[in-house]
């Protein structure tokens, strides 16, 4: 087992918002609540969940692109959670991000070459004379030829743009990359290419990934560990093989059951989750999943379940789950 790279404890993010016709009612959206996990050097840790579950907020808070409202993030013995922009700057080189939509994350008025040179020159990773060789190596790393350096983002296809966005993250020579829905916006035949590229780069440069996605089938193939999130809380965190073979949290099971399978025979009957994700503005008390949970009991409305380790490395936050093989309760018939 490798050493921990980033240790996250009790990370929270609340957005104050104003409601009412005159903005007179203040309210708080609890986008992320008490997130605790350790990211191991060299691994791919995936976070999955539906919109509003806080998975992207987690990534943004770890990189301090959003200021966490509580908790701690320790990298190289340094607390990052409350650093201001200037203090954070030296760490940005090591901690990078690839966004979902590569088109909107590239400055439309900069050529690819300019976009890639910027971080290299800013962080003084190469001199002006070394720059062309460095650019050409970066482009080669992501499978693009040198001539792309003179192009504008709009002249590229979606897959090529995402390769550029990856190259830009690599330009900083990082150790850790947050992939925030990095393949979601791409065409099916291109998704696999970009996934494979990310895996190749991980091997080559010993990168650690936090892979944020909503597509569980994708996550299963590339992750070492997977965290399932619901309404700002971690519901389950386990080694990938363990989680997909033996999902313990009722939400994880429902989520897996909702994933369409490319097989006309299997997918006609499935367990369906009723209703929709409640608003994070006014989340349910106790276990946030209790309003949709087939196992829900009185205890679930009152008490927030803590994340407990059931088998080594497999953590679940559910009152009903006590061992890896049995759930304590039977489903409530609706």
């Amino acid at each position: 087992m490798n050493a921990p790279l980033i240790t996250i404890k009790g990370l929270s993010k609340a957005f104050p918002i104003r409601l009412g016709a005159f903005g007179d009612k203040a309210a708080v959206v609890r986008a992320l609540d008490d997130f605790t996990a350790t990211i191991i050097e060299g691994e791919t840790l995936s976070l999955v969940g539906e919109s509003g579950c806080g998975k992207s907020t987690t990534g943004f808070c770890i990189l301090n692109l959003q200021r966490p409202s509580g908790g701690s993030i320790v990298y190289k013995g340094q607390e990052l959670a409350q650093l201001d922009d200037d203090a954070m700057r030296p760490f940005r080189r090591d901690l990078q991000i690839v966004f979902q939509d590569p088109y909107s994350t590239l400055n439309p008025r900069m050529t690819i070459g300019e976009a890639l040179s910027e971080p290299i020159l800013f962080h003084k990773l190469a001199t002006k004379s070394e720059l062309p060789a460095r650019l050409s190596r970066l482009l080669a790393d992501v499978g693009l030829s040198d001539r792309f350096a003179s192009r504008y983002p709009h002249e590229l296809s979606g897959g090529q743009r995402q390769r550029v966005a990856i190259a830009r993250a690599l330009a900083c020579e990082p150790r850790f990359i947050v992939c925030d829905e990095a393949i979601s916006a791409l065409d099916v035949s291109v998704q696999a290419q970009i996934l494979n590229l990310l895996l190749d780069l991980q091997d080559k440069y010993k990168l650690t990934y936090l892979f944020i996605a909503h597509d569980l089938a994708v996550v299963r193939h590339i992750s070492d560990r997977v965290g399932v999130m619901y309404l700002g809380r971690l519901a389950e965190l386990a080694p990938s093989s363990d989680l997909f073979a033996n999902p313990l949290h009722p939400y994880t099971r429902a989520l897996l059951s909702a994933v369409p399978e490319p097989d006309p025979k299997s997918s006609r009957q499935r367990q369906r989750l009723q209703g929709e994700v409640p608003s994070p503005l006014n989340p349910p008390s106790g276990c946030r999943f209790h309003t949709r949970c087939p196992l829900a009991r009185e205890k679930c409305k009152a008490e927030v379940p803590a994340l407990r380790e059931i088998t080594p490395g497999h953590q679940v936050a559910c009152h009903a789950v006590t061992s890896a093989t049995t759930t304590q309760w039977e489903p409530v018939s609706a």
């Binding site: 099916v188 035949s189 998704q191 696999a192 494979n196 895996l199 597509d215 569980l216 089938a217 994708v218 299963r220 193939h221 990938s240 093989s241 997909f244 897996l256 994933v259 399978e261 490319p262 097989d263 299997s266």
Partner: peptide, 12 residues
């Protein structure tokens, strides 16, 4: 190229 939940998890 379609990743699935069934079958063997693949590295690439």
């Amino acid at each position: 190229s379609l990743p699935t939940l069934a079958g063997k998890a693949m590295d690439r």
